[in-house]
């Protein structure tokens, strides 16, 4: 396997649908691919005791997160016969209804792509030093808890 360098996964602000569409389009040249799996995380307008969540403000220990993401990527590529994997996570403010996470795996056959996508999402939510501050009504806040 060729060695992969740590890639930057962070993107300022929400991930536009057009970016996701372009990312899918770019794979049309890779004709060994038979299946893609995509996970999109969207900011939910949770109702809390303090009010409704209007946005999440993401921060990260970026350097550590990129090193950790690199290790996750290596593990996933060792475990599944993937053609490629792309991960994008928002930093800064993402309004409710906007996309904050985009995980995209591709393989010759569907199962590897689907399982790798799911495992990558679970691992990055548990292992990356990223935090979400839920903004409530523009004035109050609480810190997001992953379930």
């Amino acid at each position: 396997m060729t060695e992969r360098k740590p890639k930057n996964i962070f993107k300022d602000g929400p991930i536009p649908a057009s970016f996701i569409a372009e990312s899918i389009q770019k794979h049309s040249t890779q004709k060994a691919i038979g299946g893609h799996s995509i996970f999109l995380g969207q900011v939910r307008a949770d109702e809390t005791e303090k009010g409704v969540v209007s946005a999440i403000e993401y921060t990260a220990f970026e350097e550590m997160a990129l090193e950790k993401m690199h290790l996750i990527r290596e593990d996933i590529f060792a475990k599944y016969p993937l053609t490629c994997m792309h991960v994008h996570h928002s930093l800064g403010t993402v309004e409710a209804g906007e996309i904050c996470l985009f995980v995209f795996t591709s393989s010759a056959h569907r199962k590897a792509a689907i399982n790798a996508c799911e495992e990558t999402v679970e691992r990055l939510k548990a292992e990356l030093p990223v935090w979400g501050k839920e903004i409530i009504g523009g004035e109050s806040h609480q810190w997001k808890v992953n379930r």
């Binding site: 996570h89 999402v121 030093p129 990223v130 935090w131 979400g132 997001k144 808890v145 992953n146």
Partner: peptide, 9 residues
């Protein structure tokens, strides 16, 4: 670094 529980995604 002091890292509270992660809540990315």
């Amino acid at each position: 670094a002091l890292l509270p529980p992660f809540s990315g995604g």
